[in-house]
Write a protein that binds this DNA or RNA. Sequence first.
DNA 1: CGGGCGGCCTGGAGGC
DNA 2: TGCCTCCAGGCCGCCC
Length: 274
Amino acid sequence: MPELPEVEVLRRSLEGLVLGRRIVRARALSPALREPLRQGELRKLVDGRRIIALRRRSKYLLLDLERDATLVVHLGMSGRLTLDHRANPRLLHEHVVLDLDDDEQLRFRDPRRFGLVFALPTQGLASDRHFVRLGAEPLDAAFQADDLWRSGRRRRTSIKALLMDAGVMVGVGNIYASEALHLAGIDPRRQAARVSRMRYGRLLGVVREVLERAIASGGTTLNDFADAVGEPGYFSVSLAVYDREGETCLRCGGVVRRIVQGNRSTYFCPRCQR
DNA sequence: CGGGCGGCCTGGAGGC
DNA sequence: TGCCTCCAGGCCGCCC
């Protein structure tokens, strides 16, 4: 569920809380995540260093530390990163605890274990296997509609799968792909190659619009997402089609349908999406 | 190499 | 009420 807006909301909420603070000690409590936690590496690169920047690349949260280190956090499906007081009881499924230079801790917990936490030298980020194949940031002004069109013009896959292809453009997952295609009036089943150059122009625009609006609402919380102090997001009430099967299309009065594409649910309105 | 699909994982929902 | 099955999806690896 956490897509670009949720990670960006988390980044912003953390920035005000931990920027400039020192991580005294990193502890890996329960190593089973998507990739096993590497306690030794974590401690070597994290212990005793100040947080000097919080960045986001794709759905990865990056905590840059002094002396060329970066702590990478991916929320997977159910991950949370929160600032807690040391005295607060430890919850189930806590994988990493970062002791700060006072009585507070950053805690990562992820019941479904699709998440990821690791550290590496900052200068090695771009060439790291997690980042090396990632496509453009949709909110980067240097990425333009014609770039998206060029990526899709020869692709036989569906336009929805193209939007979610992180090698082309990052950050758009199942929820925002459905929402953007509804806003753009494009049938999600349409082949990427059969979407006109003009409609690609509108499509990147609505992708940006829906991502920005979701960020402004604190993200979409269906089950698990929360920011650094545990606050859920409120964009779910603004979703036009996602999880609204059988309900009325707010734009045209048609009925929202659910189909399965690539083992994922897609929601759309067959009446106003062509 | 594009593209489709299955597996990872657990909590919550729904059916009976 | 309790047990079972199914579903949620980001990412990666596998296979054609």
